[in-house]
Write a protein that binds this DNA or RNA. Structure first.
Length: 104
DNA sequence: GCCATGGCTAGTA
DNA sequence: GCCATGGCTAGTA
């Protein structure tokens, strides 16, 4: 990564643009920010800067539409998404087709 | 299920 | 080595 500051700023900006009731994957956020293949690093920006920038951190899920967080944080993420109208399949996944920011 | 990614950060939103 | 991921490739004729 050439510029960590720029990476963080662009990822933060991208996450802030995810509309309420929609989700995006880590990889999509990274790609939109201009850093393809940096999906894993999006998660770090998320947990480090969510409070600072009041990020809608719960709107970022994995590429399969599943919640990657384990335990109570994962339960909270699902609850926050459901409160915005996002629906989960019996397998616990969000349809990226229906709720994905970029498809839809 | 397995392996490539990419930077080095470790909290619980 | 680790990881809140991603893609199904992994070869260099």
């Amino acid at each position: 990564m050439a510029d960590p500051q720029s990476f963080t700023a662009l990822v933060v900006e991208t996450i802030l643009r995810i509309p309420k009731g929609k989700v995006a994957s880590y990889g999509q956020v990274a790609a939109i920010a201009g850093y393809p293949r940096m999906a894993r690093h999006v998660s770090w920006v998320l947990n480090r800067d969510s409070r600072k920038y009041n990020l809608p951190w719960h709107r970022v899920v994995n590429a399969s539409g599943g919640i990657s967080l384990k335990g109570e944080s994962g339960d909270l993420q699902r609850a926050l998404l459901e409160s915005e109208g996002v629906e989960f399949s019996p397998a616990g996944k969000v349809s990226m087709k229906l709720f994905g920011w970029l498809q839809g």
